[in-house]
Write a protein that binds this DNA or RNA. Structure first.
Lengths: 339, 339
DNA sequence: GATGTCATGGGAAACGTTTCCCATTATTTC
DNA sequence: GAAATAATGGGAAACGTTTCCCATGACATC
């Protein structure tokens, strides 16, 4: 059952069927109804490969995710898919392994599938401006930090202000009287990572409150509970007087909390802890963990909106910064003076 | 840059280039090398749409996931993608909303994209045998329970024995002296769901140990912490003498544990709890939660293997049952006699 | 009534592959 | 050395769309 059959059965030309299906060109209501009836009767679905071959652009949107295992991304992915499907396009979700060049991977897909647009999610990109310019189709970077010296006109992004949100978390801890605050995040060898930006916020908050920055309070750590756990253990071995932990993700915070609790420490009485992201698990941890909660679903939605605006040529590259919320659930407490 | 250009540049015919790229037909080593050199030099990537149009079958594999938010699936999805890519095929991940008919969705994709094969993951399928037979391409059901009266020759599956694993968990609790064991799972209105099978194992374990089944100890519950939390609250309101909780997923267990802990109960001193799946979070919960751990990654791998065997026609439909492991981390304890 | 305009619909050429079938050349066999 | 066979490579017809361009006919205008 192909477009030719439909044309024959509805007594019109092939071109007309195509126009009806794609809502393009002018077709009289009568003809449209006639064709649609046949289409529905035979449950006709156009062959996407043929269609995408002819059109120089397919309607497929690709989502390149780094760190798909982080539950924070799960809801975002769902929302991206929902929004993309809402616009009648299929979503190709591609998981990007650590160390894989995501732009090359996307370029491959572009040539192979004639992608319509790409959303990049998660990770840190230190690609050059030239590299970004190689991508011949619209794309949006979501929750991704980029090297500073890329011209903002070259890409779109949906992010939070990592430095400021981190500053917010650390300031909160300081306001509770903490001064020995450790920081757990991932620091790859490239510049301008999420981790680095949050570190900058951490340092700035300390400085603004007259606390000297102590590099030994900062520990490198993957965004997972197990990594948070071992990093915290390492930290506790070298520093004894920590009173608060700031983790760059809730997954890290959960691992860190486990390390503290299993040593018999009490949260928040002996030590305060705050995470980042706002995943459900953090709330249901015991104790519930404070966090900097990112509006992931809104960010996902905004990303798709920006992408389709770019595709339709309705707008230039855009950069949207979302605000996160400091959620207090009681895992942080005013410091115990006599401690 | 298309196949015609490559042919011209390498001084061979179009057909030869195609043969080289697809390793089909006979091409002399010299010709192959000549063509490959040009391909690499110009970084030529064949147009997938054209290729898939001509071949009646594309090389795309689709993964239809229900419940993508459950962290248990995250690693499985990653593994499926890895395995599929390893075989040179792209994976189209499609999230299936609750209430959507996944077979229809897959059928749509099959017509639209000429899929090569489909893997279904998660959820409960009560489709008729006829419905399954509509799918004209190989497919595998992973971690999915199906209605009993579908001929096993019609589909392939990779599962665990839900009833037996559930039996294992409940027997363990009984062996610790528990008799008032509640059970939290999702019970949709269809038969033969994962929840129902685990319920059967629960009931059987009770019966085999001379404990009467009490329906009021069973609570309906989504596979999420929040749902586990509220279900547990409901349960505690109507039953006061519960000594153990068996949750049909770790996400539920985490929510249940939170409910218990926030009431001031101690795990495992006052009440024991065991989950299902084996997600990382369960280990890093405090206390670490016992669970029936499924070999998710192995199951994902097996699913892809079976699918490609089916595609290559090397084998008939197959059903593989994996064994889960009872992981004891201390959230279950011998019952306190004087309690 | 002739001409012009507009709305509508059809024919046919692409899009970039794969693959069938045949032509050419090299190799073997008698 | 001729004929048969095998190895290799090329031409061209599909695959199912989209879209350009043109044909047709209805209607309005003068």
């Amino acid at each position: 059952m192909n477009i030719k059959d439909i044309a024959r059965l509805s007594g019109v030309g092939i071109a007309t069927v195509s126009r009806v299906i794609n809502n393009s060109g002018v077709v009289s209501d009568a003809t449209r109804a006639k064709v649609m009836a046949v289409v529905r009767e035979h449950n006709y679905i156009p062959n996407g490969n043929a269609s995408n071959l002819k059109k120089t652009r397919s309607n497929t949107i690709a989502l390149m995710v780094k760190g798909i295992a982080n539950p924070f991304f799960a809801d975002m992915i769902k929302e991206v898919e929902r929004q993309v499907n809402l616009r009648g396009c299929p979503l190709l979700i591609q998981h990007v392994e650590d160390g894989v060049d995501e732009i090359n991977a996307a370029l491959q897909l572009v040539k192979e599938k004639n992608l319509y647009g790409v959303i990049f999610m998660g990770g840190t990109y230190d690609h050059s401006e030239e590299k970004f310019k190689q991508l011949p189709i619209p794309f949006v970077l979501t929750t991704i930090t980029t090297t500073k010296d890329v011209d903002p006109a070259v890409f779109s992004s949906v992010i939070i202000d990592d430095m400021q949100e981190s500053y917010k978390a650390v300031s909160y801890l300081i306001s509770l009287g903490h001064r020995n605050i450790c920081f757990l995040a991932r620091f790859p060898l490239v510049q301008h990572t999420t981790g680095n930006r949050r570190l900058m916020g951490y340092i700035k908050a300390l400085e603004d409150h007259g606390i000297e920055y102590d590099a030994s309070l900062v520990e490198d750590c993957e965004y997972s509970p197990s990594s948070g756990f071992t990093a915290t253990k390492r930290l506790l071995n070298k520093k004894k007087d920590i009173t608060a932990v700031f983790a760059a993700s809730d997954t890290i915070a959960i691992g860190a909390a486990k390390a503290l609790l299993s040593l018999g420490l009490s949260i928040p009485n002996d030590i305060s802890i705050i995470g980042f992201d706002g995943i459900e698990m953090a709330e249901y941890y015991h104790p519930s963990l404070d966090t900097i909660s990112q509006p992931g679903v809104d960010m996902a939605k905004a990303s798709v909106e920006i992408l389709f605006d770019l595709i339709s040529g309705q707008s230039e590259n855009k950069h949207v910064v979302f605000e996160s919320v400091l959620v207090k659930r009681g895992s942080c407490k005013k410091i115990n003076k006599q401690a």
